[in-house]
Amino acid sequence: MPAYLARRLVQSALILLGVSIITFLLLHFLPADPARMVAGRTASAAQVEQVRQQLGLDQPIWTQYGRYLWKLVQGDLGRSYLQRTQVTELIAARLPATALLMLGAILCELLIGVTLGAFAAARRGTAADQAVMVGALVFVSTPQFVIALTLLYVFAYWLGWFPIGGFGDFKHLVLPAVTLGLLGGGWYARVTRSSVIEVLRQDFVRTARAKGLDRWRIVLVHVLPNAALPVIAMIGIDIGYFMSGIVVVESVFGWPGIGQLTWQAIQQIDIPIIMGVTLVSACAIVLGNLIADLVAPFIDPRIKLR
């Protein structure tokens, strides 16, 4: 186990290094000019050149990357070109909101997805199964904007049960989390359904049935834990997905997460912020997968980490 962990951590570090190199290169070859963006439209060519030097953008790309990496290993993501604030500070300010929304969203996805998936599997082939699966497909393919605005309009504006967006207490979290739960729940429903169907075919289930156990008891106690692995792997992926920010849902509900920061930075070619956010979300993806893999043996003792 320690050897496995060490190997995975080294792998993760290499992946992050790769991500940082690719992102850095992509941003470098962007046909836009951050120096001109900072210098403003009244600046002369000489003034733009001066800004370019100050930002270090006149250096060869590998020198620039080397400098960036050297600061990065010291935990310094640099300062935003336009806001002038430390990027670590900007990201840290958004992380709690992003993490909270991520937890809420994954919880909703699990509640909606696993329940529906297990139900559909147990009723496999019936009209109820088909209805659930079509419903899941509809929500998965609906644009975020539509669900978010509809929920906001009905439950916040019209019925007044929840605030019209904002960040603060539990009431603020419900609608954005449910929106994401509805959007992502469909994936969980599909994965859960096929996984449960597979387990249902196995011998121990037949044995349980032969013992005369109640059908729902079989699904809840014997099947679901055995069918949980693909779902857990999916949570690992979801952590990364949510940590990179959910621009649309954030902006409908005024949720101060990382997506809003990223979106604005991309529009302004604020390279240090774009780099920082990319690295943080890459970290989340890598960690999410690592955690999912580490948890697996506890769910299914047949798995050994080597």
Partner: peptide
């Protein structure tokens, strides 16, 4: 100053008196 919400939602909030 409240930051971060869609203009279309802010219009709803104006109509609601928020």
């Amino acid at each position: 100053f409240q930051i971060g919400q869609e203009p279309v939602v802010n219009l709803l909030r104006l109509q609601k008196g928020e």
